[in-house]
């Protein structure tokens, strides 16, 4: 494997639900340490695309290469590849019956087969990374939205993934809680984590993205570095969307 093999290479992904083709041929690459951000109106296939990457949704057509290895047709081995792709969901999907620390621990114990001691240490380390050590013994129902999402990030990070997939991580949070989640994500990006992010947070996109993709009707309409997309996007559709979102999420603009 050469040094410039992309961590992720997505090739011509298609996905339909019934007669509706939600993703209509999307290709892109992510190099190590890069953050790629997908923006675009709701219902344009961004989340479906993300789920097609780690095969939570099976694409109808196209390929996904993780470190150069094709994983769409990996059959029984997909759970091995998923360990390397952390995913954060809009609705957290924390394990309701487990405390925060056990939410992080369970995959270490059952998937990575660590000992109890190793798993606990690693879990506490990850909780520390997202500022949740004092909530280690709380159950998901006892956490705020921001805390829940930080916990779900810790849970994904504990597997030491090579790439993190974020599916609208702040969309179900109260506006005053988005900041603490975006902080964690910014720190990850700064720390060199490879990330693919679907978000409406223009401030984050502008700050963190190496490249922004504007998706419309299942396709990438255009893409480019933030400076270009924010100031001289080619399509009127893109410009109007970015303008509208920037106004909506203005408070995130002037961040760090």
């Amino acid at each position: 494997m050469s040094t410039n093999t992309p961590v992720l290479k997505i090739q011509d992904i298609h996905k339909s639900f019934g007669n509706l083709e939600v993703v209509r041929g999307v290709s892109f690459e992510v190099q190590k340490g890069e953050t790629k951000v997908f923006i675009g109106p709701s219902g344009t296939g961004k989340s479906t695309l993300l789920k097609c990457i780690n095969q939570l949704t099976a694409p109808d057509r196209g390929n996904v290469f993780l470190n150069g290895i094709e994983i769409v047709h990996s059959h029984g081995k997909i759970n091995l590849y998923r360990q390397k792709m952390g995913m954060v969901f809009q609705n957290f999907f924390l394990f309701d019956h487990l405390t925060a620390v056990r939410n992080v621990e369970i995959s270490l114990l059952k998937v990575k087969r660590m000992t109890r001691k190793e798993a606990r240490e690693k879990a506490m380390e990850e909780l520390n990374r997202v500022g949740m050590v004092d909530k280690a013994d709380s159950y998901p129902a006892e956490l705020s939205g921001g805390q829940s999402q930080r916990l779900s990030i810790a849970r994904a990070l504990a597997m030491d993934p090579e790439v993190m997939l974020f599916d609208e991580p702040t969309s179900s949070l109260d506006p005053e809680l988005t900041g603490e989640v975006l902080d964690v994500m910014r720190r990850l990006a700064r720390g060199g984590m490879t990330m693919v992010v679907v978000t409406h947070e223009m401030g984050f996109a502008r700050w963190a993205a190496n490249e922004i993709f504007f998706m419309d009707e299942g396709k990438i309409l255009e893409s480019g570095p933030p400076a270009e997309m924010f100031t001289r996007a080619r399509f009127d559709r893109t410009r109007r969307f970015i303008k509208k979102m920037t106004e909506l999420y203005a408070e995130e603009q002037d961040d760090r």
């Binding site: 780690n54 939570l56 759970n79 091995l80 998923r82 360990q83 792709m85 952390g86 995913m87 969901f89 609705n91 999907f93 924390l94 394990f95 309701d96 369970i106 995959s107 059952k110 998937v111 779900s152 849970r155 994904a156 597997m159």
Partner: peptide, 22 residues
Amino acid sequence: KAGQMTAAQALGMTRWQGVFFI
């Protein structure tokens, strides 16, 4: 909720691990 299984699988658990542990 279906999301519990989705999250388990996203972490690399097999379907049966998701069933038994989550």
